[in-house]
């Protein structure tokens, strides 16, 4: 399948008070046309920072140190191009943020918010045009048109998040970066948002989604492929089903084992969480960053950083996999 967006060797750091903390460290990823790519990991693993960088929203104290950003045939160097054109941000890459309530201006009606978003990129749009466009989009996606007259607080949490999704894709961005878009919602609303994203992909409104979440069962259902991040690095990547049922990296295995779903097997044994906490990124451990918490770690893991083993479609960075070919 055709590549839509790819990043190579992306590094980003927070710089404050003379201290530099690299939270995204050498990440390379590829998003294909028509695909949902899931990114998972514990809080503090760098997934939200990665989302900001990918959505071209990095601003001080967050600095992109290096990285190639390839979108639909054009290469951008993120570290140099501090001010990437407006054309790119919002139009080609859009961000669907974490909490919809905070994203919406509470004093404006939904139609006014939609107008504002369209005008930010197409200043000459009249309110009538914007209204018609938003209305048409809502109808196509099977959402009630009356939400246009509502204020954000009048909508339920689930509906609000769906409306934000529609608004952030009004300009037909190629890529939608969704950062934990459903973590504040209950399962039923979660399902509705996921369905909407699938609908947007099928109707070719957007061409690819990067879906960031800490919830593996959700990603298992929404994403085609999943990348697992730990301490700023991608430690394993592969098709969703394989990631859950045949994970290779001990960290992914531990994450999968810690999942509590209403399936009979979890009542038959003791589910263990992952002991310890992620490393302090101000002074990351040498070698594998998961080694201090890993029950399989041996001397080499604490000294040498494992390279990814496998191929670029299916890899895991762990010394246990050395010599194994994918």
């Amino acid at each position: 399948m055709e590549t839509l967006l790819s990043v190579k060797n992306l590094c980003a750091a927070y710089v404050q008070g003379g201290q530099r903390v690299r939270v995204v460290d050498g990440v390379s990823l590829e998003l294909r046309r028509g695909e949902v790519l899931g990114i998972a990991g514990e809080s503090g693993c760098g997934k939200s920072t990665l989302a900001q960088v990918l959505a071209l929203l990095a601003r001080p104290p967050l600095w992109v140190e290096q990285g190639e950003f390839w979108l639909d045939g054009t290469i951008y160097h993120l570290a140099q191009e501090h001010r990437l054109s407006r054309e790119l941000r919002g139009c080609k890459v859009a961000m669907l943020p974490q909490g919809a309530l905070n994203a919406l201006n509470p004093t404006a009606r939904i139609r006014e918010i939609a107008l504002e978003v369209i005008r930010a990129h197409q200043p000459k749009t009249t309110p009538q045009e914007a209204y018609a466009r938003t209305q048409e989009r809502l109808e196509r996606l099977g959402l009630p048109v009356r939400v246009l007259e509502a204020y954000p607080h009048q909508l339920s949490g689930g509906m609000r998040q769906r409306v934000v999704t529609v608004i952030s894709t009004l300009l037909n961005p190629k890529v939608l970066i969704a950062d934990e878009p459903t973590s504040a919602l209950d399962v039923s609303s979660q399902k509705a948002v996921v369905k909407l994203l699938r609908e947007l992909l099928e109707q070719r409104v957007i061409e690819g989604v990067i879906f960031i979440a800490h919830d593996l069962p959700l990603l298992r259902n929404v994403a085609d492929r999943i990348a697992i991040m730990y301490a700023g690095k991608v430690v394993e990547l592969g098709p969703s089903r394989e990631m859950v049922e045949a994970s290779r990296h001990p960290y992914t295995k531990a994450l999968v084992e810690a999942v509590l779903v209403p399936e009979p097997y979890i009542r038959q044994r003791r589910v263990e969480g992952i002991e310890g906490t992620p490393p302090d990124l101000r002074a990351p451990p040498p070698g594998c960053r998961f080694a201090p918490r890993c029950r399989y770690a041996w001397a080499r893991c604490r000294e040498l950083e494992p390279p990814p083993f496998g191929d670029k479609e299916r890899f895991a960075a762990c010394w246990l996999l050395e010599g194994m070919s994918a």
């Binding site: 810690a258 509590l260 003791r270 589910v271 969480g273």
Partner: peptide, 30 residues
């Protein structure tokens, strides 16, 4: 998610050790 099981196990053990009753409020049926 990686910590949830740890905290729930803690509650399980507390019940085991002290015979305490627990009312567990949650939105997560899992």
């Amino acid at each position: 998610a990686s910590l949830r099981a740890t905290v729930l196990n803690l509650l399980k053990d507390v019940r085991q050790k002290h015979g305490m009753s627990i009312i567990f409020i949650t939105h997560d049926i899992g």
